[in-house]
Nucleic acid binder design. Structure first.
Lengths: 178, 178
DNA sequence: GCTATTGCTTGACAAAATCAACTATCTTGT
DNA sequence: ACAAGATAGTTGATTTTGTCAAGCAATAGC
């Protein structure tokens, strides 16, 4: 429980990240039969599940480049999948909405994605399925809450020869002398 | 616990996938400062942690296109990061190995990646960290074991009007009549 | 009102990934 | 032993994906 375990925890998380990176890659292959790219699918999903999002909202939440997203949305609009309505409140932004055509197009993708996950789950007993979902919920709950933006965190125990602590805050890494 | 819950489980897994897709994306941003792409980094990692892998082995395990990987490896070889040794056993394949230079190049990446995860963990209490790691281990254990390649799995409970079961096996989706 | 900021778009470009064709080697069946 | 087929890897052509900076219109802050 001491600092000695920090390395082990980090390794465990990294192993999981490698594992799940691959898993997600495999799962996404299934949607490859659709005419949409992964990014397009993610955007479609958000469009289908939000009230009247703006482009900026989607870009922020999906972590997409604004320009990139703009093109994706332009493509959707051209294909008649979405409608852009000028915002009354702020003339710079448009409120986005799936058209009926958009919903019809999206529906089979949704089925495909569901069935794929269903197949994955189906390979396991109900008990295992429950444990899996519980573990996922736990991770989401733990990592989903925004971490405190306050103190820097000790990453490695001090060792002779170290110049100080090595700390990382918000992705940036610093060395700090004693 | 009945089939009624299937949909709920599927939704939970999908939500987690969306969540973790984003998480991984954010975590990879940190390595953006390095001169290597995500794919290159993954390959480097495997090279550093395997005995004498072949290109095919890496391509399979990382899910990379053979041609794409070939170019990545050619780049590494050109930069003096790896060495290809003709396999005695099979003249078609080469055994790959990081050079000392390769190890030196890889080391700071490893530190960066570790510190990034460390920062993530550091935002949580030790107890939370333990629960996080336990949940990740659970998922890996459950999904890591190769599922039985036998029976098709029931995805949705029967409803009036259904033509039959909708089943999915290994990513392919079939309809089956009663 | 003037300036800075914000939301979005566009053009130019670079990086990442896919596909098919091809060579060299190995395996299988007869 | 040898032809036919499979496999490991490379290469060229191409597409897809993503990034960056410039620019425009609308808004917000002095």
């Amino acid at each position: 429980m001491a600092a000695r375990d920090v390395e082990a925890r980090i390794e465990a998380v990294r192993r999981f990240n490698r594992f799940y990176t691959r898993k997600i890659g495999v799962l996404h292959e299934g949607l490859l039969q659709s005419p949409f790219s992964l990014a397009q699918t993610r955007v479609l999903y958000e469009l289908a599940h939000r009230e009247r999002p703006t482009a900026g909202e989607l870009a922020r939440d999906l972590g997409l480049d604004a320009g990139y997203l703009s093109r994706i949305l332009a493509g959707f609009a051209k294909a008649g999948l979405i409608e852009k309505v000028h915002s009354e409140a702020d003339g710079r932004q448009s409120l986005l909405r799936l058209t009926d055509e958009g919903r019809r197009t999206f529906a089979p993708l949704e089925v495909l994605a569901r069935d794929e996950i269903g197949a994955m789950l189906g390979a396991h007993s109900l008990d295992e399925q429950d444990r899996l979902v519980a573990a996922m919920d736990a991770i989401e709950r733990l990592l989903g809450a925004k971490p405190e933006a306050t103190a820097p965190y000790l990453l490695r125990p001090h060792q002779t020869g170290d110049i100080g602590w090595v700390v990382a805050v918000h992705g940036a890494v610093y060395a700090r002398e004693y």
